[in-house]
């Protein structure tokens, strides 16, 4: 299990990186944390002709809390984002989700943006970005575009990042006032990809009645599956909301599949159980906010 040969590029600046990527096009692959890419290379399931290592682009390591949310640079490692108190204050869902991403040692190296670009529907971060309505900033030689989450995840392990493009950062909107979030999942072993997972956000008005209740499901379809259950919950206090009905509505949106670890029926069941748990948790957080 050794990677196939490739031409290695270690650009020293963003401009240089974009030039290399423009030159390599379809044949180029970006290496950031490498925690998903290198296993694929070691198994020779991927064989890019060019590997563009962005680890020297220190400028991409920034994690900035802006008034509207958190901007995470392409080289920011999971562990760093997870530990950041300002990030947790601005958007607690990031820490809640990152704690569930693989194991601590993997989080020391893996990057948040890399996980988004990898676009595994079983991963936590795509669901977080989708739920929060965040975006990914893609740079190419001569331009930059921000792709909203809804358009970024295009299929299993497929994202909108095209040949010649580098995802330079991701933006996670801040938690609105009187809102709460939660992440619940069931995995076979601690740290494994989830059999099913739910990121939830609940918002309340000044009377502490529900004004927003949304979830994003992990392992429930080819891309993160979003479900807005605000209507099902009704404009009422969390204590009297019909969370079970909301959970059923989430279940109806999910399209899980069978695999060797779980049947589709079980995953659908879990999605319901976890959606109810996550929504209740998020509502509790919102009440405490």
């Amino acid at each position: 299990m050794k990677p196939p040969p490739f031409t290695y590029h270690a650009p020293g600046s963003l401009g240089e990186a974009l030039d290399v990527l423009a030159g390599t096009g379809e044949d180029g692959k970006v290496l950031a944390g490498g925690q998903s890419l290198i296993p694929l290379l070691n198994m020779r399931l991927a064989a890019p002709a060019h590997l563009v290592d962005i680890n020297r682009l220190a400028g991409l390591a920034a994690v900035e809390v802006e008034p509207g949310g958190v901007r995470v640079g392409a080289l920011a490692r999971h562990a760093r984002v997870e530990r950041s108190e300002p990030v947790a204050a601005a958007q607690p869902l990031l820490r809640q989700a990152l704690r569930l991403v693989a194991h601590p040692v993997i989080r020391n190296r893996g990057t948040v943006v890399g996980s988004l670009v990898h676009a595994d529907p079983a991963a936590e971060l795509p669901a977080v970005l989708a739920l929060l309505g965040g975006s990914v900033r893609l740079a190419r030689r001569g331009g930059t575009r921000d792709v909203p989450a809804g358009e970024f995840f295009t299929g299993p392990l497929e994202s909108a990042a095209g040949p010649g493009e580098l995802a330079v950062s991701a933006f996670f909107p801040a938690l609105p006032p009187r809102s709460g979030t939660a992440f619940r999942e069931v995995a076979r072993r601690h740290g494994d990809y989830a059999l099913a997972g739910i990121a939830a956000l609940v918002g309340l008005d000044e009377d502490l009645r529900i004004t927003a209740a949304r979830v994003a499901c992990v392992s429930a379809g080819p891309v993160p599956v979003l479900a807005d259950v605000t209507g099902v919950c009704g404009h009422r206090p969390p204590a009297s909301a019909d969370w079970a009905a909301a959970a059923r509505a989430v279940q109806d949106r999910a399209e899980p599949e069978d695999d060797i670890h779980a049947t589709a029926a079980y995953r659908r069941h879990l999605i319901g159980v976890l959606a109810e748990r996550a929504l209740r948790d998020a509502a509790r957080e919102a009440l405490n906010a």
């Binding site: 490498g34 562990a79 040692v105 020391n108 190296r109």
Partner: peptide, 21 residues
């Protein structure tokens, strides 16, 4: 995790890291 080493003091998987990086 057998290949875990410390990179600038932080544990990382050396099998998921290229030496050149």
């Amino acid at each position: 995790g057998c290949c875990t080493v410390l990179l600038d003091g932080e544990p990382v998987r050396s099998c998921l890291t290229f030496a050149v990086t």
